[in-house]
Design a binder for these strands. Structure first.
Length: 887
RNA sequence: GGGCUCAUAGCUCAGUUGGUUAGAGCGUUGCGUUGACAUCGCAAAGGUCAGUGGUUCAAGUCCACUUGGGCCCACCA
């Protein structure tokens, strides 16, 4: 070793060094290689406004594990990176920045505003990309895409035009979710329903021909009453039957409205009479259409009341509500107010209460697109992991509603729709032109008076093309052919509807294929209270802070080790200590191995473990660790293939710490210069580094580079081959017994409070001859780790005074007592053990005397139970003997 | 209203198709020694597996219900 290794692992210097090297050496780049199988993942593109949070950290760590693992397994593994323009989110951020300068977006105008947004994107849009690099992500950065790249935008336009031509896109006047703050339409998915503590207001509407009499209606949104155009009752309702067809006077506005009948009205709810506001409520809209009612809109897009709201015009909707209630109360028309919980949509970007609003928007007809997306999942062409999400997905796709895709913002893909002003004079519909490129003149009238649609497309209308548009679809090309369909999608269940389902639909519609085979859905990261971790709640643990405090590998390992498949993650900061300590453990074990390695011992090529026939040349300790290593390799491989990342991580942790370090390295210390031991020790470390590399890329590379046999980056190595011939249950069982023996002796010493520095003598009685002969060669190990001077093997136990004896299966471990010993305390302990064994024996006896059990249980289970009983009885007998010895 | 999910050691959680005496990390207690590691080692304490009932030779594991968390979907105004 030319360089001293420090006592502690220092992640900071290591991480930046290796990430730079990997980038410089182009190790993230995946090529189209016909000689290899392709494995590909497209990143869920983070918003350009995004800042790395724990959700990203988990999501991208999992993807990185898959990519690094598949690369080691010999796939041409591509991780496609990119960012999302995030229409509303980005527009809001840019507007906020402008507000600091005292500018509104309207002051700038569309063009200048969009220019400012691009500027913002250039400045801050890759923040998250740099943060992903700190996480160690092995993305092919040269292929970085953005949802508003020119090619990508062309794909979006292409898709719009194709759907329009198939009549799957239409324009119409409907009630949509409107965010009065963002001043744009939202899709149903973008309006997240939150429970609100509100009131049910009972309003009295007087009859037109008899103003002394009233019908009472119940509403949660009294301000919309200004737009009422009817009152509806159930035709079967005896209370109101006689009034159907009569007129009421809408208070405050004094407009006559008709009483209509519809069996959709629930007689039980409220007063049984419903005010109908077709322009401000989706149900009322349907009623309005059905009964030919007038649609009166009383609100501006910003949520304030408009000129049709009479004296309330100009008031914000909530102020208008208060004023209207006051006025109704003053007029004696507010019958009562009862508390009422309701759930109402809130803008998923700014959390403002969404207003159902009648407006002209563009929609995608989803039912035809859903068909193949349903079939593919049902047939298992696409699999969800964990499978329970399949049901959630299917439930949504099978009940899919049309998708409102137009947004009244400026940042995004402007719709490829043009209006001919001339044609629209005669008929609004005939003036609509949908075209891939801006037409110079109207194809119908030939005039050049064309304007482009102001609206942009929903951000998700570009994201749903991600898996193929990222590969320059619709252009035919080698990448698309080779890497698409992609292999695995890794994301959170919160965007199954927004994104996953729509990608599946787009995949089938535009490429006739499923865009991916597996969908792995990880849990949501929550704080220790179970709340979703988010910046706005102030409960977030910043991954970058964890990286600088504990290291990236520690962050990654800790996160993954607590992510049970699909289960939410409750996180507190101290979890990351485990990862940091583990990295340090790997570091120090490697340091120990490397400083004790005699390179001349290593004929790397003729490594002992690859030859099946040389078994007997290795002693059991080396055979044992090889057996354990290959068992670990086999299981970890299975677990990674099955997306059980936490199980793989915890297995790797337990193997390295408790088997390799705690037992193996301690056992071999006295024989560390022995050639076979050197080879095995080195080989295990070398292979282990590859297994841990997907989880902890930095430390594994750092140590890898210090191995005498290392050539090139660990990223370019291959996953170890499983050598089943090394897996030996017999060797494992024998070592297990040695460990139990050592533990028992340590335990005795601890119980007897023997000075740790001193050494003891042990008489070990093993009646089974074969076992005795097997254990005798291992005496050296036992003496070494249990701190024993003289270890004497006996065939038959002889009761002796002044001995402390423990029973382990059918072994007797006897230790001479020296000095003053609290015999009473030892006896008490033995009594406790005796009592425990007695009750267990009783249980077993009951079990075995039960004919139902002996008749029905499998033979090997019964035999196992019998063996146990025999062993227990032996133990009991021995405990009795020991007791007598102590007295 | 429908659906999903969770309840196991003081805390955070594992526990594969039912089959040893139910595990880990952290925390706690005691002791610190062996040719890497105090971000460490050794030992110990700590559990009626939320409750009730059922299926079974056998239930933490399967079923039903109950209680208490969390989440999603749905147009009762």
């Amino acid at each position: 070793m030319t360089e001293e290794l420090s006592k502690q692992y220092n992640p900071q210097t290591t991480e930046t060094k290796w990430y730079r090297t990997w980038e410089a050496e182009n190790l993230f780049s995946a090529q189209v290689r016909p000689d290899r199988l392709a494995y590909s993942i497209v990143i869920p593109p983070p918003n350009i406004t995004g800042i790395l949070h724990m959700g990203h950290a988990l999501n991208n760590t999992i993807q990185d594990i898959l990519i690094r693992y598949k690369t080691l397994r010999g796939f041409s593994a591509l991780w496609m990176p990119g960012t999302d323009h995030a229409g509303i989110a980005t527009q809001n951020v840019v507007e906020k920045a402008l507000a600091k300068e005292g500018i509104k977006r309207q002051d700038l105008g569309r063009e200048k505003f969009v220019a400012r947004a691009w500027e913002w994107k250039q400045l801050y849009g890759s923040t998250i990309i740099n943060q992903l690099k700190k996480l160690g992500c092995a993305c092919d950065w040269e292929r970085l895409r953005f949802t508003m790249d020119p090619d990508y935008s062309a794909a979006v336009i292409e898709v719009f035009v194709r759907l329009y031509e198939k009549k799957l896109i239409y324009q119409g006047n409907y009630i949509i979710n409107w965010c009065p703050r963002c001043q744009t339409a939202l899709s149903d998915e973008e309006a997240s329903h939150l429970e609100l503590q509100g009131n049910l207001y009972y309003l009295k509407y007087p009859f037109k021909d008899n103003p002394q009499e009233f019908i009472c209606v119940a509403t949660t949104r009294p301000e919309t009453m200004l737009g009422d155009t009817a009152v509806a009752v159930n035709p079967k309702d005896k209370r109101y039957k006689k009034y159907i067809g009569k007129f009421l006077i809408l208070p405050l506005i004094n407009r006559p409205i008709k009483i209509i009948a519809d069996h959709l009205i629930d007689m039980q709810f409220g007063s049984g009479a419903v005010k109908v506001t077709p322009a401000h409520d989706p149900n009322d809209y349907a009623l309005g259409k059905k009964h030919g009612l007038e649609f009166i809109q009383v609100m501006h897009p910003d949520g304030s009341m408009n000129e049709l709201a009479g004296k309330y015009s100009g008031l914000d909707r909530f102020k208008a509500r208060a004023a209207i209630l006051d006025d109704l109360a003053a007029a004696g028309l507010l019958e009562k107010v009862t508390p009422h919980t309701l759930s109402a949509g809130h803008c998923y970007r700014c959390h403002t209460l969404v207003e159902p609003y009648l407006s002209q928007q563009w929609f995608v007809k989803m039912k035809p697109l859903a068909k193949p997306a349903i079939a593919a999942v049902k047939k298992g062409k696409i699999k969800f992991h964990p499978a329970r999400w399949t049901k959630v997905y299917l439930n949504w796709v099978e009940n899919i509603q049309d998708w409102c895709i137009s947004r009244q913002i400026w940042w995004g893909h402007r719709m490829p729709v043009y209006y001919c002003k001339n044609c629209q004079k005669h008929d609004p519909q005939s003036g609509v032109i949908v075209s891939r490129i801006k037409p110079l003149q109207c194809p119908k009238c030939g005039l050049e008076d064309l304007v482009q649609e102001q609206d942009v497309l929903d951000t998700w209308f570009s994201s749903w093309l991600w898996p193929f548009a990222i590969f320059y679809w619709p252009k035919e090309n080698a990448e698309l052919k080779y890497f698409y369909p992609t292999s695995t999608l890794v994301t959170g269940p919160d965007i199954i509807f927004f994104w996953v389902a729509r990608m599946i639909m787009a995949g089938f519609e535009f490429t006739q294929q499923a865009p991916f085979k597996d969908v792995y859905l990880h849990g949501t990261i929550r704080d220790s209270q179970g709340k979703k971790m988010s910046k706005s709640l102030g409960n977030a643990i910043d991954p970058l802070e964890i990286i600088s405090e504990y290291g990236t590998d520690a962050l990654r390992f800790s996160l993954v080790s607590i992510t049970t498949q699909g289960q939410d993650v409750y996180l507190s900061k101290d979890r990351f200590e485990q990862g940091r300590n583990f990295a340090n453990k790997i570091w120090n074990a490697s340091r120990f191995i490397l400083t004790n390695l005699k390179t001349e011992n290593l004929n790397i090529d003729s490594s002992a473990d690859t030859k099946n026939t040389k078994n007997e040349k290795l002693d059991i300790v080396n055979r044992w660790i090889l057996s354990r290593f290959y068992t670990t390799l086999e299981k970890v491989t299975q677990e990674l293939e099955g997306y059980k990342f936490n199980e793989a991580a915890n297995r790797l942790y337990a193997f390295f710490w408790h088997e390799f370090c705690d037992w193996y390295l301690e056992l071999i210390k006295p024989q560390i210069d022995q050639k076979n031991t050197q080879v095995v020790m080195y080989k295990i470390l070398e292979k282990y580094l590859k297994l841990i590399h997907p989880f902890m890329p930095f430390i594994s590379e750092e140590i890898w580079q210090r191995l005498p046999g290392a050539q090139g980056s660990i990223m370019r190595q291959s996953w170890p081959q499983l050598q089943k011939q090394w897996i030996s249950k017999q060797d494992e069982a024998q070592m297990e017994l040695v460990f139990n023996l050592i533990n028992a002796i340590r335990n005795m010493r601890s119980e007897l409070e023997i000075d740790p520095a001193s050494r003891s003598d042990i008489q070990l009685t093993v009646s089974d001859q074969a076992l005795r002969l097997a254990l005798m060669p291992l005496a050296g190990y036992i003496k070494h780790l249990a701190r024993i001077d003289n270890l004497i093997f006996l065939e038959n136990y002889i009761v002796q005074k002044n001995q402390y004896v423990t029973v382990l299966k059918d072994l007797h471990i006897a230790m001479p007592l020296e000095g003053i010993v609290d015999t009473a305390a030892l006896l008490a302990k033995i009594d406790l053990k005796t009592a425990k064994i007695l009750s267990e024996i009783k249980n077993k006896e009951n079990m075995l005397s039960n004919k139902n059990f002996t008749n029905r249980a499998p033979a090997e289970i019964i035999q196992g139970e019998k063996d146990k009983l025999v062993l227990m009885r032996e133990q009991l007998k021995k405990l009795e003997v020991i007791k007598n010895g102590l007295r």
